[in-house]
Every structure is written in structure tokens, then in C-alpha cells.
Amino acid sequence: MLSRIAEALFWIGRYVERADGTARILDVHLQLLLEDPWVDEDTACRALLAVMGTTADVDAVLSRDDVVRLLALDRDNPASIAHSIAAARENARRAREIISTDLWETLNESNAAMPRRIASQRTHPFFRWVRDRSALVFGVVDSSTSRDEAWHFFVLGRSIERADMTARLLATRSLTDAGGPSWTTLLRSCGAYEAHLRSHRAIPTAASAVEFLLIGRRFPRSVLASILQAEESLRGIDPAGASGVPDPAHRVLGRLRSELEYRPIDDTVRTLSESMEEVQVGMSLASDAIKERYFPSIAMPVWIGEAL
């Protein structure tokens, strides 16, 4: 497979998952700002933007409308939903000869339907629409892609981004201390509430919710399950590497997986923000190692004239 095609598939998976994860995080925290009058809106908005890797004007007073503009509608912000959907569509165009017609049409329609403005009372339906479109993309890929290298690069990108977004979701729990979203709300935001009840048969606590979203092997959105899926995809891309010396991406993911599995969960809960930052750094390092291994930046030759 050409490296440019593999890279496009990798980033389609990442961008679609980024749009989905950003919509889930925004939906939870913007609803919290509406329901809790005691939360300082400017402080909460700045903390949320910091978790999502976005900065804002230090002199301006931020509101929920500013957060929606920056993280949902700003097509120039790499962390926004609009940018992610547009970038996924552009990468699909680059890999048009590999992806299915259904996937191309789904991404094309999503990009075309992306609104320029959203009324304050329409934010929740918009976030639901983003989640539905992301689920449609993943469903189309699952049902129309052979389990070959193309599949593994797409799943690898999705898994790296999913681990990062779940870590960001957990990190937002401590943004406003007691005024933050409940563990039940966070679990519901990523579709994990019912699965948590079946697993623990009890109301979520800090320890059980963090454990479920962090190291729950059976829940596909947990950080550990995403890392395991990424490792499996790496083995699918390079089967020979499974019995040889692990590449840098394997080493980064393996070290992070071991730290998550064997660290006491109480220690993780006490230092939740710092622990989730470590996960985000680990995912960034793994992504860099994957890009260096499979998507090398090779300068295109420039013709300056024929030699005589």
C-alpha cells in the first residue's frame, strides 16, 4: 500500500473519532453550564478549552457560545468538529481509489451538511447529529472494508484518537471540582452507563467509573481497550514484527498499557488530571512513531533542467 493512502486512512479514523469525542465532551459540559448557576462560566470555559488544546484571548470573558464557536464551528481550529469533518473528507478524497463509495458519500454529505451557525437551544441536537454521523462512518467501514492493511490503518488511527479523547473526557471531571459533571453523566456521555451497571451492579463511584473507562477490557471506548486494539492493528500491518524487536510505537503503547493495568486505581483517581495527561502524551508519542515508521516525509524531486 502507498504510504499516502495509508496515511489518509489513518487520519480519516482519527478525525472522525475526534469529531465524535469532541461532541460528547461539549455536550456534557455545556449542559452543565446551563443547569448549574454556581459555576463560573468564564473559568469553566477556559479550563475546557485548555483540556481540548485550544487557547483563547486572555482579556475576553468567555461564554458557552464562544466555546461552541471555537470547538464546534471554527473550521481553522484543528480541535474543532467542523475542521475534523472537513479534514476527514479531504483525506477520503486522497484515498478515493481505496475507500468504498458508501464511505465517500457519507463523509461528503456530513461535510456538506455542517452548519456555519448553531442557535443556543440547538446545540444538543447538533452534537447528537455529529455522533450519529460518526457512528454511520464507523458502521460503513465495518461492513464494507476487507480486513486488510487499509482496515488496520483506519482502526489504528481511530484507536489512538479514542484513547486520547477518553482521557480528555476523564480529565474534564476535575475542571470545576464539586461543580463538575457526575460520574453517571460522564458514563452516559460515552454510552458506558448501562455497561457499567451490568459489570459492577452498583451506582457508579469515582473508583469504579475511572476503572471502567480506563482499564475496562470489554468496553470498546476504554483507554486500555483502545490501546489493545491499536497494538493488534500494528501486528496486522506488520506481522513479522510481532516475533521480532518491537518498533517504537509498540514500545510506547506497551509501556503505557502496563502502567495503566498495574497502577492502583486509587492512585489514579487521586491524580486523575496528571494521569490523563500522561495518557495524552503517550498517544502523541505513539502517533509520532507511527508517522515516522509508515508515513515518511520525502521531499518531491524538483526538475531544474536536463544535464548535458
Rank of each mutant, 00 (worst) to 15 (best):
G191Y: 12
E278V: 08
L228M: 08
R255I: 09
P204T: 02
G282Q: 00
L260K: 04
L272Y: 01
I237C: 12
A225D: 01
L256Q: 12
A286G: 10
A286H: 06
F212H: 15
L228D: 15
E231N: 12
D288M: 10
S174N: 09
Y294H: 07
G191P: 08
V279K: 03
D288F: 12
L197F: 14
L214T: 02
S287H: 07
A171D: 15
H200Q: 13
S199P: 01
G241S: 14
I237W: 05
K291G: 12
T176Y: 08
E261T: 13
I215V: 14
L186Q: 11
P181R: 01
Y294Q: 09
E274C: 03
Y193T: 06
R173C: 02
S233L: 00
G179L: 02
V281N: 03
S275T: 07
L253R: 04
E292M: 11
R188Y: 04
P246M: 04
T172M: 04
T184Q: 14
R173V: 00
P248M: 06
R255T: 11
P204Q: 03
S273D: 14
D238N: 13
L175Q: 09
S182K: 00
D247E: 07
L187T: 05
L197S: 06
K291R: 15
H200T: 07
R217Y: 13
L197E: 07
I227D: 13
L260H: 06
D266M: 05
T176D: 12
V210Q: 01
L234H: 04
L272C: 05
E292P: 07
T268C: 02
F295Y: 05
S189C: 00
F212V: 11
R251G: 09
S243M: 13
H200P: 05
V223Y: 05
D177Q: 15
I237H: 10
G244L: 06
P220R: 04
F295V: 08
A206I: 03
D266A: 10
R263N: 13
P204G: 10
R173A: 07
D238G: 10
E211V: 04
T268S: 04
G180N: 02
A225E: 04
R198G: 15
M276A: 15
L175T: 07
L285T: 11
R255N: 06
Y262V: 10
A289N: 05
L256A: 14
A230G: 01
E231C: 13
L285A: 12
V210R: 01
Y193E: 08
Y193Q: 06
